[in-house]
Amino acid sequence: MSTWERKALNFINQTSRWDKDKHISSFLAFSISLVKNLTAADIALQLEFEDEETAKVKCASPVHLNDLVLNPEPIKKLLYTQGFKTIYWREIPPPKENVLQEILQAFSSAIIIPLNTMPNNSLLVLGWSSPQQFEGDFLECIETIRLRLKEVLLQSQQQLYFQRTAIRFAAILHTIPYALVFINNDGFSGWVNQEGATLLGLSGPGEQLPAILSEAMMQLRNNALNIDEIYKEAVQLFSSPENSISNWIWKLEHKTLKVSCLPVTTQQISGRLWIFEQP
């Protein structure tokens, strides 16, 4: 096995372990730093096309290049003309042809590795102060690293997207001034907002097992002063999974709840959403 084959394997091994042990937000920065070390590059950075006007430097080493803004259009043109393949510059082109002149000042050789993932496309730039030959085994190593980097980038983007989405929806649902309880029909997952957790006397909001939620809701129902009326309505409600109810009154000792129970049915999820209002 050649040195470059070993380095490619090393890269795959180390990036396979990292995402299990460490936080996803540093996964890509770690991976780019690893590429820089393995290839003995003098500069390594990610350039992300954030919108039509913005290509932004991220995960840069040296770090002072971070947040640098470049015009995306000339760089995209270069990528198109090269068919989105890795570009190997054994010599840096003259300034007028060098679309990365801001970040490749005083370098002799560079590699531009397109990493196409949606929604934001990226590229990785590596640069060397001394001239490089980029021979056979090295090229194969870079192409292996490129494939793994695409996975790393996709995984990072997706996980960060899901985290942001979860944070946003949790914030919205916790702000709604009603107790919300969602029980998934899969029997394994459920969710409750802060108001709901307080109403049901649970330890906290967020993910809860349906069994725990059902138990807490049954206790609430059993404490109702109009328990017989509630049971009558419940028999009707649960006679079909498509049934729903609103303005269902649960009279408790110190308060009255207006309850809604709505089926939630999409391709990905099915369950019931309970809404408890205190009029």
Binding site: E50, D51, E53, T54, K56, D67, L68, V69
Partner: peptide, 11 residues
């Protein structure tokens, strides 16, 4: 005006 480009003065 792009909020991304002008997020810092680098834009």
């Amino acid at each position: 005006y792009s909020p991304k480009r002008y997020e810092t003065i680098s834009g």
